[in-house]
Design a binder for these strands. Structure first.
Length: 704
DNA sequence: CGACGCTGG
């Protein structure tokens, strides 16, 4: 700097001062000499060791030093130079690595050091398929960077924006949240780099974002994109994001491989196919319990009922074993796990295995019987044995009748690998696959179907229309949905008057897109809510909409079914399921002071609290969109209004009774449908019939 | 007696 000829006119003393300040600033400024996106690993390592935090300019805490030492143990830390090398040279890269390799926590930090987003008022975003992951990873990274969560590092999820505009430069968020943002800012101009994490899970939102970002990359050369995934699908992502230079052959996006750090897992197959996978699973768990070394077991089954039943059977047989010969086998604890399980009971999966019944006797064992939640969303430490019968419940969508249903189906090889991996997180493990090796190789498909191929796409179409993408058939999908699925979605939105006959978004459609609600056939909630002021019942429809957007509120514990049904009967109103839901919520609100109200009435406190949250968010959206909030005093008029608004939003499901046999025909296209069994359906004073959910397709009947 | 695998705004 002092050799600069422009400084020649300065006096010597001034020049000396300049040298001193610049060397001071080199010492005091951890990011001295950092050029955005030309940063090298060596510089970053030095900055990390610096006494000052480069982003807060505060001295690093002792905790920071400690965490930094553990970060250095991660394989990805030693690959920093290689990462910066690839990241600096390319706009789009693909990162692969086993879970637990540290890619979710480390890569976004590396990017922040390279992008220096804080110096340009930009952000680095890292998307996650689940809220809980976005929250917990952000918390961990804030600790690693020695900043307060919500300041320089934050997260953004549906009900919580833990960021500070102007300060936050590294943001973890749900993929759905970023997709929403794309509706308001098509160029995603706030971001310097966008990282799509867990891309192999192929959620609807991540798939759409990949399509959007691929085309956005051409318009925004300054935007960098990183797609992070587990190993199997890397090649697919690489070729999808290949660069098409006009004169050259397309070259696949470069790959950065994060080295794993998992323990070896021994995989066993059955000799012959098992005719009854539940029976085989129980047999295998007990075999492990009798013959294998200490260590917990994870068994994958398909659903709540199957899991509860199996837990009972395993427990019975294990008790039998220990009663026959308490000295040869330890006590067994069997815990169910599925998402609708109350949180308190979910916690049981983290309890330690039981102690030996008596000193010197064999130690106890914990067996977790779980749905697919344990495959991705929830990690249980200490699992050594995995039992994989090879089935899961798959969603299938039939566009012709617009019905989504669940089907027990064989898993994919990718899924089998993921399940096996759950055995090797703390030490070497074993995986028992209850199918033959031949079937694994030749019968299982490679990957699980991405969501975009098995879902009703009405909400996706609405969002894309909101972003301004009209030609949905030619949108650049990683996996294109069936044209019929798209057509049915467009048709539905046209019926709902969200799209006009030219496929243009109508003002109503734009409004509908604002609401975080499904515009699906089974519940056209947004439309119902928006049109409800017409019937002077928007306040009530708001509540019903919120109740319909959360999981089932009715609890029915196996040993208290009669009591639960009785409690439900007390809250039921004759006008139907929806008015009953309204009644439940209103009673819940009036009894907020009684903490046990929900439990005493056999209702899910979690679902009700969620409904309250959703209601508040929808209310904010209504206010923003200036939708009137009204309700009429007269109860009969109100109920009639509510029923009219329901039919308006649910018109695809309106059916009329056909003869006396109890069968129904839909008004829209004469499909034969039935009523959902637990529905409340009884004639009211006017001879009208009232609503209900239904299987296979929901039906709502209000007289003729 | 049924249902509802999991997740998101």
């Amino acid at each position: 700097m002092v050799d600069n000829p422009y400084l020649a006119h300065l006096k010597l003393s001034q020049r000396r001062a300049l040298v001193e300040t610049s060397s001071v600033s080199a010492n005091r400024e951890p990011l001295f000499g950092f050029l955005p996106r030309k940063v090298k690993g060596e510089q970053v390592r030095k900055a990390m060791e610096h006494e000052l935090n480069p982003f807060t300019k505060q001295p690093h805490s002792a905790q920071y030093r400690k965490i930094l030492e553990s970060r250095k143990e991660l394989p990805v830390y030693s690959q920093m130079d290689e990462f910066f090398e690839i990241f600096s040279r390319h706009q789009i890269i693909v990162v692969v690595g086993e879970t637990g390799a540290g890619k979710t926590t480390q890569i976004p930090q590396f990017v922040a050091y390279s992008d220096l987003p804080h110096s340009k008022g930009k952000l680095v975003a890292c998307t996650q398929p689940r809220r809980i992951a976005a929250m917990s990873v952000a918390r961990r990274v804030a600790d690693e960077m020695d900043v307060q969560l919500g300041k320089h590092v934050g997260y953004s999820i549906r009900f919580e924006d833990m960021t500070e505009p102007g300060t936050t430069f590294l943001k973890y968020m749900t993929d759905g949240m970023l997709l929403r943002e794309a509706m308001n800012d098509t160029a995603l101009s706030r971001y310097s780099t966008i990282i799509l994490d867990e891309a192999h899970e192929r959620t609807l939102a991540t798939d759409i974002l990949m399509g959007l970002l691929k085309s956005l990359a051409r318009r925004r050369p300054d935007l960098k994109i990183i797609v992070m995934s587990a190993t199997l699908d890397a090649v697919k992502f690489q070729s999808y994001f290949s660069l098409h230079q006009p004169s050259e052959k397309p070259s696949p996006a470069p790959l950065f491989k994060v080295l794993g750090r998992t323990f070896p897992i021994e995989v066993f197959y059955t000799q012959e196919p098992e005719p009854d996978y539940v029976e085989a699973a129980i047999r295998t768990v007990l075999m492990i319990h009798r013959a294998e070394d200490p260590g917990d077991v994870l068994l994958f089954l398909t659903g709540e009922e199957e899991i509860e039943e199996t837990c009972r059977k395993i427990k019975l047989e294990a008790d039998d074993l220990i009663n026959t010969d308490p000295s040869s086998v330890g006590p067994l604890m069997c815990v169910p796990l599925y998402s609708s399980l109350p949180p308190q009971q979910q916690q049981r999966i983290f309890e330690a295995a039981p102690k030996p019944t008596q000193e010197g006797y064999p130690p106890g064992r914990k067996v977790v019987v779980s749905t697919n939640v344990a495959e991705t969303s929830l990690t249980i430490d200490g699992i050594v044995y995995v039992v994989d019968p090879g089935f899961f419940k798959q969603k299938v969508y039939n566009p012709r009748i617009r019905v989504e249903s669940l089907l027990v189906s064989p898993i994919s090889r990718a899924s089998a690998q993921q399940r096996a991996g759950r055995a090797g997180r703390t030490r070497p493990g074993k995986c028992f696959r209850l199918y033959t090796e031949k079937d694994f190789i030749s019968e299982l498909q490679e990957g699980t179907y991405p969501e975009i191929l098995t879902s009703n796409l009405a909400s996706v179409v609405l969002i894309l229309a909101g972003i301004g993408i009209k030609d949905l058939v030619r949108f650049d999908y990683l996996d294109a949905p069936a044209p019929e699925t798209l057509m049915r979605a467009l048709q539905l939105l046209n019926y709902l008057a969200a799209l006009d006959d030219e496929g243009e978004l109508t003002p109503l459609g734009r409004l509908m897109a604002e609401f975080p609600l499904d515009p699906q056939a089974s519940k056209s909630l947004a439309k119902m809510l928006i049109t409800s002021p017409e019937f002077k019942v928007s306040n009530d429809i708001l509540t019903i909409t919120a109740m319909l957007s959360v999981p089932n509120v009715w609890l029915r514990p196996p040993n208290q079914r009669a009591a639960a049904d009785q409690a439900k009967a007390l809250l039921t109103v004759p006008e139907g399921d929806h008015l009953t839901l309204l009644n439940v919520f209103n009673n819940y609100s009036q009894n907020k002071s009684d903490r046990n109200w929900a439990w005493n009435n056999f209702l899910s406190a979690r679902a009700l609290a969620q409904a309250e949250n959703v209601r508040a968010q929808l209310l904010r959206t209504m206010e923003r969109s200036e939708i009137e909030l009204i309700s009429v005093e007269d109860e009969r008029k109100r109920n009639l209004g509510i029923q009219k608004a329901l039919i308006c939003g649910f018109f695809m499901q309106v059916a009329h009774k056909e003869g006396e046999k109890g069968s129904y025909l839909t008004v829209k296209d004469n499909q034969v449908v039935g009523l959902h069994p637990p529905a409340v359906l009884m004639p009211n004073q006017n001879g009208y019939y009232s609503t209900s959910l239904c299987s296979p397709s929901a039906v709502h009947s209000y007289g003729d």
